[in-house]
Structure formats: C-alpha cells, structure tokens
Measured scan of single mutants.
Amino acid sequence: MSIQHFRVALIPFFAAFCLPVFAHPETLVKVKDAEDQLGARVGYIELDLNSGKILESFRPEERFPMMSTFKVLLCGAVLSRVDAGQEQLGRRIHYSQNDLVKYSPVTEKHLTDGMTVRELCSAAITMSDNTAANLLLTTIGGPKELTAFLHNMGDHVTRLDRWEPELNEAIPNDERDTTMPAAMATTLRKLLTGELLTLASRQQLIDWMEADKVAGPLLRSALPAGWFIADKSGASERGSRGIIAALGPDGKPSRIVVIYTTGSQATMDERNRQIAEIGASLIKHW
C-alpha cells in the first residue's frame, strides 16, 4: 500500500482517536478583511474532515458561482459510474476541433488520438481543461445529471445548469451553476471519506486533486513544508474566484476548506493574494 493509499484508508480510523479540534476566530477576521479589500462577498467554511463538524464559517449558506470547482464533483460522478460498472477509466473518447472550447490546454493536443476517461478527469482537475469537462459531462448525461447525482448524495443546493464556458457567467442573483460553501464542503467530504465511492475511487479523486497544477498562487502558496493539500480552484466573470481543498499537517488531510468570492473589481492577482492570506491565517491558527 502506497503512502497515498495509506492516508485515505486511515481517514475513518483516525476519527475515533483524534484530539479535539478548536476553532480560531482570527481567520474570520481575515475573511472579513478580504471582503473589505476586494469590495466583494466572500464565503468561507472550515470543516473537520473526520467528524464533519463546522469549525468556522462566514456566509456559509449564501450562493456563489461554482466556477471550475464543479470539476471535482463531476469526476466524482464519473467515478461513481465506474464503480457501478457503467463506465471505464480506460475508455478512449474521440472528439473533433468543433468540440474544443476556450481554455483547453490538454485536449487541444489530442485531437488525433483522443483521450481516456482517466486522462480527461486528470486534465479537468489538474489543468482545469474546459473541453475535458464538457466531454465528461456528456458521458454522464449533461449538467442536469450532475445535479441529480448531487441530489442523490443529499446535496439539494449545488446545481450545474450549463456547459463550459457559459457556466462562468456569474450573474448576480442567478442561481444557475452555483453552490453554497456549507453544501460544497459537505459534499466534498462525502466524496473523499464516505461510502458513495469505493476506496480506490476515493483515492483516485484525491490523487487528481493533489496533482492540481493551476492553484499555486492560492492556499498552496501559504503551505508550510510537510503539509498535505488536494485542491481545485476556479475563476469566472465578475471578479469571481474560489477554491475547495482538503489539507492538513503531517502529510495527511484533516480539514476541508472552501473559499468563494464574487462581485469584485480587483485584479486576479489581488483576488489570489487575499485567498492566500486567508490560508496563511488558517495555518497560523491551526
């Protein structure tokens, strides 16, 4: 058993032996400061991975655009179909130039040979490839079927209504393609630790998130040596930015963190910096 498999397999085991986890309101002070700095709403939640207890939250039940963070949920739905014998990670999917949409750094290189379902999930999560996400959405029946999958998990909040890139429109008060921090954190925890997916599929999902290559300026920039993080970021119109993550010290995840912001006029660099500073406060007061 690899170190990674050891880590995921023991998450339920550690729940019975973990020390009490204490919240630190200092992080919420930073979240509120980020709102002031960005001139935008910020949603935040910090969840204990083992118990599911909410440690801190700010606007946990307000809607925010999901942006590309939905791609983790999408690959969770794909893995659920794999577990049920309805899909194979090794199945190759062929597509054409007409299928390519904006920001497809991986799929645009494989027009001649296509990509496997496994490769598409990797591209969608680690590189946020939009065509990969659309191709995967097609395999499960489209955005409405992803919403149905989430409903069956008990998440009646999170919804996907459109495809890439239209889902990134982020119109104020538009509930399409949105979630709430509390709903996203709970759903992510179920995917990573619950019985919905097999152990192998849970491991695969967290491996893809751990290999994320496009979230460096966010929480990863504040991470001390030896800490673990598996994450997925997102960005969209109207100053929207977000990240969902499982992270913790000693090389294993122990908390879920979800951060969303929307409605800012700030630059992408400034949005990144504010999220990184929230992460730094979280780690300092861990």
Rank of each mutant, 00 (worst) to 15 (best):
A235V: 05
V72I: 07
E87V: 06
T179P: 00
P253G: 05
R41I: 06
G239Q: 03
L167R: 01
R271H: 13
Q204A: 11
D48V: 03
I11S: 07
V31A: 05
K102E: 11
N130S: 05
I206M: 15
L55R: 06
C18W: 10
I206T: 12
E277R: 09
G226C: 04
P172K: 08
L47V: 15
H156Y: 11
N134V: 01
H5Q: 13
L47A: 08
H5L: 14
A77E: 06
L282C: 06
S57Q: 14
Q203H: 10
T138A: 15
V106G: 03
F228R: 02
E164G: 00
P143Q: 02
A40L: 05
I3V: 09
L111H: 09
N134A: 01
L136P: 00
R7T: 12
P12A: 14
P172D: 14
E270V: 13
Q203E: 10
A123G: 05
N168K: 03
A276R: 15
I244T: 02
L10S: 11
I11M: 14
L111R: 07
E195V: 04
E87I: 09
T126R: 04
A276T: 06
R91E: 04
T138I: 10
R241S: 08
I11Y: 12
K284W: 05
S68G: 08
S233A: 09
I3D: 08
R59Q: 05
L167Q: 03
D99G: 05
F17Y: 14
P253N: 05
S221G: 07
G251R: 09
R241D: 02
N134K: 01
R91Q: 04
G251F: 05
T27S: 03
E175R: 08
R7L: 14
M67V: 07
L188E: 00
D129N: 00
R41Q: 09
T126D: 05
F17V: 13
S80Q: 14
L10R: 02
D83K: 01
A183S: 11
M268D: 06
R189A: 11
G90H: 15
A183G: 05
D48A: 06
E62R: 04
W163R: 07
G226K: 07
I259M: 05
K213E: 09
S57L: 05
E166I: 06
V8K: 15
P165V: 09
Q203L: 08
V21R: 01
M153R: 04
P165Q: 04
R59H: 06
K53R: 14
P172E: 13
G226E: 06
L146Y: 02
L247I: 13
F149E: 05
P12L: 14
W163D: 05
D99Y: 08
R241Y: 04
N50A: 15
I93S: 01
E61S: 13
L282R: 00
H94P: 07
P105A: 04
D269T: 13
L218N: 03
I243S: 00
T187G: 04
N134S: 02
L218Q: 02
P172N: 09
Q88G: 09
L135V: 11
P217H: 09
L218T: 03
T69A: 00
L47Q: 06
P65K: 05
L167A: 06
M66K: 00
L38S: 06
A170H: 14
W208R: 00
E108D: 10
H5A: 12
V72T: 05
E119A: 08
D250K: 09
D250P: 05
E237K: 10
D177E: 01
S68R: 00
M153K: 05
D231A: 05
G242F: 00
L199R: 15
H5T: 14
H110R: 08
G114D: 13
C75S: 04
A84T: 12
G114S: 03
L192I: 15
N50D: 15
E195R: 12
L199Q: 15
Q4E: 12
K213D: 03
A215E: 05
E166D: 13
T179G: 01
T179Q: 00
P60R: 09
T193S: 13
R220G: 02
A77S: 08
T187S: 12
Q86P: 03
Y103C: 06
V82A: 10
T116I: 04
M180C: 15
I11K: 04
D83C: 01
Y260V: 03
T262D: 10
T158S: 11
F228V: 03
V106F: 07
T193Q: 15
P224F: 00
G251I: 03
H94G: 08
T178P: 00
L167I: 09
L120S: 02
W163G: 06
S201P: 01
V8Q: 12
V78T: 06
I259F: 02
L89H: 04
R92S: 08
S96R: 14
